[in-house]
Design a protein around this nucleic acid. Structure first.
Length: 261
DNA sequence: TCATTTGTTTCATG
DNA sequence: ACATGAAACAAATG
């Protein structure tokens, strides 16, 4: 679930609670998410403090006073919980214990999240061949990225190597707002459609951040409020349909988003 | 038991 | 070699 807007919120949450705290110790309740050895995490982080965070696509990068960067990915069900004077929250997988006796829990219900140690932001981005972050992308670069693509536009939007941060739910939303069928071949989009898509990409992401990811507060003409087969389309008289596009459940309105390949 | 969920990785195909 | 899309994988839920 967590895509760019949600990671942005995690970043704010992290900044407000856990920056500049000294890491006294770390508890590993589940090691499956660790992409380096437990020992390496301990060595890199214990006794250090978190100094600065950056968001890169769906990743949260956390710089430390040491020489390693802690990188969090939240998979489908990851989240953060800061607490004190209580037991570890349910689904806590890794707990950072701070010297003032507060704790930051990295939670992951389905254990699909990952924790990395990286040498730098640049190294991590390169290592995982991540595309430019969707919020930082300029219109000109967006147009260029789409230029030589032949696959479905949804596939391109969600490909983290092309541009990073957009997942299943928000890609559907952008395409819906533009009236573009998710299966449309990217090279058949005209200039205006691509510009509109760029605009809606930013709009949707920014709005989601502003509403703090609370979907019930999104505008009622957002697809996100009607992501269910057979629901009434809020823009026309159509019914929302569910199909598979590049293996993902995709919701759209067949009458607003006409197929024309 | 199995289909379903998501993001990423891997593999086959064109 | 490269782009694309399908399938596999991680784990848990209903």
């Amino acid at each position: 679930m967590p895509e760019l807007p949600e990671i942005t919120l995690f970043k704010s949450y992290f900044d407000e609670t856990s920056l500049h705290q000294k890491i006294k110790s770390i508890d590993f309740l589940h090691t499956g998410s660790l992409q380096s050895s437990k020992n390496d995490f301990v060595k890199a982080l214990e006794g250090k403090e978190f100094t600065e965070t950056r968001r890169l696509g769906k990743y949260l990068l956390i710089k430390t006073s040491g020489d390693k960067v802690l990188v969090m990915h939240f998979g489908m069900t990851g989240e953060l919980e800061y607490y004190r004077n209580q037991d570890p929250p349910k689904y806590a997988r890794v707990i950072f214990n701070f010297s003032d006796d507060a704790h930051l829990g990295y939670l992951c219900r389905r254990k699909l999240g990952k924790l990395f140690l990286a040498d730098s932001e640049e190294e991590f981005k390169k290592e995982h061949s991540l595309g430019t972050d969707a919020l930082e992308l300029k219109e000109k670069d967006f147009m260029e990225l789409l230029e030589d693509k032949t696959g479905s536009i949804k596939g391109v939007l969600t490909d983290q190597h092309t541009l990073s941060g957009i997942g299943n739910v928000y890609s559907d939303e952008m395409l819906y707002q533009c009236g573009i069928h998710p299966k449309t071949k990217t090279d058949t989009l005209d200039e205006d459609q691509k510009k509109q898509l760029f605009k809606e990409m930013k709009n949707v992401l920014k709005l989601a951040i502003k509403k703090e990811g609370k979907r019930s507060e999104f505008p009622s003409d957002f697809l996100i409020r009607h992501r269910k087969e057979g629901e009434d389309c809020p823009k026309c008289k159509g019914k929302i349909k569910k199909i598979k596009v590049s293996g993902r459940s995709t919701y759209f309105c067949p009458s607003c988003q006409k197929e024309r390949s």
